[in-house]
Amino acid sequence: MVPSESRHFDLTCCELDSVERLRAHLAGGRTLYEVREDGQGGRHWQALTADDPTPFVAQTEPPPFAAKAFFFAEREAVFRFDGERFVAIEPTAPAQVLFGLHACDLAAVAYQDQFFAADAHYQARRAAALLVGLDCRHSCSQGFCTLVDSGPEVRAGTADLILLPTEAGWLLLIASVAGAAAVADLALPAASRDWPAQRVAHRQQVASEQGDGQWLQDGIAAINAAKVSAATWESLGLRCLVCSGCTTVCPTCSCFAPLERKLPDGSIEQERVWDSCLYEGFQKEASGHNPSALAGQRVQRFWQHKFGEGFRQTFGRYGCVGCGRCDHVCPGGIGVHAVMRKVGKPCSN
């Protein structure tokens, strides 16, 4: 858990002889999740037991799913109607550890912490979770965290513990009160190495791999200056198959829809389920009126939400954390790179 005061927590650094020992320790009394390959091409957050023997592997590529679903569940019962009364369904909040979260995904959790600040379901689960971050030493294939201020080193206040890989082995940064409490029993020795310099070196390395980001700056500028023509948005809209993949994997997307399910006992349970603003029906009113009837308008909305200045001011950062998942998942080839390059090009407007 990362209560707001921990955003000002002073980092301390310990030597970490074994990541696996830390992992086993944290898994005691909590369900610990780590990203594992399934042998069929998939990589998933998977629950491990405390005695899991598999060595920890620092993965460069983020997993297909960020941490979002752990706190903002993809399907979740909200209340039940028994024929007369409406009864709130309390969220279940098991103690969990997410082990090895990348900086971008942690920035997204912090973003959603703000958005869902008054949502009981989100906050109950969030409060019961310990976040163990992982600094990246190299850029992943589509990522651009250095351009949107989300990485590669885990940002202050977004994790409880931070794994810092170095040539000479692992260091562990204690990043919150809860993080300190969680590892108190391990009696880890303080690190004598210059860990801040190590992190700066990682940042410079990843920044050089990710480039100057002119393509992104141009795109953001065009979107906020409302300089992108409707025709450009429509040409992008024609490539949107409305699969909902981008909003599903985007770690900061938060839209949901209600779903009523009739239970075998005759009662009605209302769930909330992940929704996507790319669907034509997303804003369609009962009268048939639709303020965002065109595919291009909906594509525009998605990117305004990620890069709009108004949202940036509200949340203190862009809605895009630079993970590149939308690039991977978009069947129409209009993930963040393609879109921002297209809208940022003066000739397209």
């Binding site: 069929q40 998939g42 069947p331």
Partner: peptide, 22 residues
């Protein structure tokens, strides 16, 4: 409760359509 694409799958290459996602 949901579905995720297999990034390494030779046919779908980590993507799905709206039906698959649903």
């Amino acid at each position: 409760v949901g579905v995720e694409p297999q990034p390494g799958h030779p046919v779908s290459q980590g993507q799905l359509c709206s039906k698959g996602w649903s």
